[in-house]
Nucleic acid binder design. Structure first.
Lengths: 338, 338
DNA sequence: CGAGCGCGCTAGACCGGTTTAGTAGACCGG
DNA sequence: CCGGTCTACTAAACCGGTCTAGCGCGCTCG
């Protein structure tokens, strides 16, 4: 049944009649072993069912080739990004160790666990940790914040330009004739702040600051979006609602439609992330793509430059997000043009 | 910057003037250390910034208290289950190591990686691996298949009764007057097979076998659901469509609605999993809950019985799934009652 | 008052690899 | 025939913990 006495390197060595060191060399494809010996070792390993013990190997090896990724797997955009990271890391000869942030397991806890696994670098996806903590982490291990602006001299950042993304949305709506535009914000985190600021700036650039407003919500969730939807209904309906992410948009969309508001005829709604959710036919949300594949490539590249090429200066990559127009936006209805 | 010379247990021991062993005892909260010594060690560790090296600890310790979980994080039902597993494992003093199955990282690869991390048990969520492979894995390490029926004497299984869940759906539809019911299957895996069989059996029990049929699809994805939707449109529309999971249902729903088919007025549609997706207001899918919290509790319990209580006989738990009626099912439209 | 016990602590082996320093033998030019 | 270099391989130290056996000491109890 269960192989209690695991097969070890010494077993293989004995079986072939060579030393542990030789077996080690063979398994790391290191040079300096004759072809026949190599073959004999492989054969014996095969026969005995030997597998290198990763844990033991990690102990002495200076390198682990492990990269930690912290993500909220419930968020489908995060899930997609993780898939891309796995792909990109794989291509570079690294492995992603995934830490799932859940209601019961906060980011700090997850980071600690990943450090315990001796990850050589850390990718923080959509993190809401304070800058100071990220900075401190970065002194221990190369750290890349994905999807968010971050301070600190040692922290790399890969993100799309949220302000620009929101500006694209506002521009799109403006061209459709919208003038009274409301932003549903995503709470108090750094990402929400960037998007809110981008929204306000875009409004000003169109001289719409007087006719726009912001609804604060308490997070990037569908529930928060529903609450925001109710606030919208309670007041004077705008012609367009710019939500800070897709989940918020879906929540708001739901409440408005249930209340008999036609979308996009009466009110246009937009999201952010282009998550798989937004792509669903029944949702078909106009949104902004954060280019997960490119972000993943950049993030892995940043890690590798530090790990394998001794880069020490900070690196930041800001990609241009991409507006994805779907079915929740349309021409403003007899807008009260100024 | 980076602390090259990591602080080790010996450093802490020297600093306090005790032995390595004592420091080890303190950090494992083991008994046999005086309160003052304990405090002194903690203080020194704190001062030096010491953290136990998990990798080293894993090497000798017979126990790792790690449980591997293999999941497709893109599937929001899986993501939810993982969250529950993390919670349940935490409560039992274990930690979940999450392996993400992605298009580029198959289940086998993920399992190998998790074994390398010396997980003491393995949870396979919605696995599509062949029974033989699962059985072989189970001889190495306690294994629980979550959400699927599985053979093999050593493999524990926690699942909901898919046949019964589908039967509940069919019953619900029957009471609404539906007679011509089509099943959209989820491919060739074990889970899809169970649901298909359950559907056919339910039809027979209502003597509807002649008026029902099955559309085969190539997986549990939205894309497959869309393909199925097109097949439906190409033929004689049934009054109800029972999909093998929520993603399929959402895909089919999308295609049908785009084609002008009213749901649920003209055709009722159901899913399976009660994933967060199904709960979205705009989707509001009638579906079947697989009780993720309970399944997680049982799965962890099964693991713990093997690990901590030496159970060796196989254990299977089959929970009763729960029909969740939402907005995609309604009375059959002037059904062609026999 | 001495044997017996439990507590607090320690020395040193050990886990399963990697790595370093070094050896034995083949080969080669002079 | 000798010194030198290269190749194939090995012994032993080492990584940073855990664990076992055991030791000294103060207490209790007959």
């Amino acid at each position: 049944m269960a192989t209690r006495g695991r097969v070890t390197m010494a077993d293989v060595a004995d079986h072939v009649g060579v030393s542990k060191a030789t077996v080690s060399l063979v398994f790391r494809q290191a040079p300096g072993v004759g072809d026949d010996t190599r073959a004999a070792v492989m054969a014996a390993a095969d026969e005995l069912g030997y597998r290198v013990n990763r844990t033991a190997a990690l102990m002495t090896a200076r390198r682990t080739h492990l990269i930690g990724a912290v993500a909220q797997i419930r968020n489908s955009f995060h899930a997609e990004l993780v898939e891309q990271l796995v792909r990109a890391a794989d291509a570079a000869g690294y492995e992603i160790v995934l830490g799932a942030v859940t209601p019961t397991h906060g980011e700090n806890r997850v980071v600690d666990t990943l450090l315990d696994f001796r990850c050589e670098a850390m990718l923080l996806i959509g993190t809401e940790l304070p800058d100071a903590q990220i900075g401190e982490l970065a002194t221990r291990v190369p750290t890349v914040a994905v999807g968010r602006r971050v301070g600190g001299p040692d922290v790399d950042a890969v993100r799309t330009d949220d302000a620009q993304g929101i500006a694209q949305v506002v521009d799109h709506l403006y061209r459709l004739g919208h003038r009274r535009i409301v932003h549903v914000s995503g709470g108090s985190g750094a990402i929400a702040a960037d998007r809110r600021a981008g929204f306000l700036r875009a409004l000003r650039s169109y001289d719409l600051a007087h006719s726009g407003s912001v609804i604060e919500s308490d997070g990037f969730t569908e529930a928060a979006g529903m609450t925001a939807g109710h606030s919208l209904l309670a007041g004077d309906l705008p012609t367009a609602v710019v939500c800070a992410n897709d989940l918020l948009a879906v929540g708001a969309l739901d409440v408005l439609r249930s209340a008999g508001v036609a979308v996009p005829e009466q009110v246009s709604i937009t999201g952010y992330d282009d998550s798989p959710l937004a792509r669903l036919g029944n949702v078909a949300l106009t949104t902004v793509s954060q280019r997960p594949a490119e972000q993943a490539d950049r993030a892995i590249a940043a890690v590798i430059e530090r790990l394998d090429r001794d880069r020490t200066e900070r690196s930041t990559a800001t990609l241009t997000p991409e507006l994805v127009v779907r079915a929740t936006t349309g021409p403003a209805q007899d807008s009260t043009l100024s």
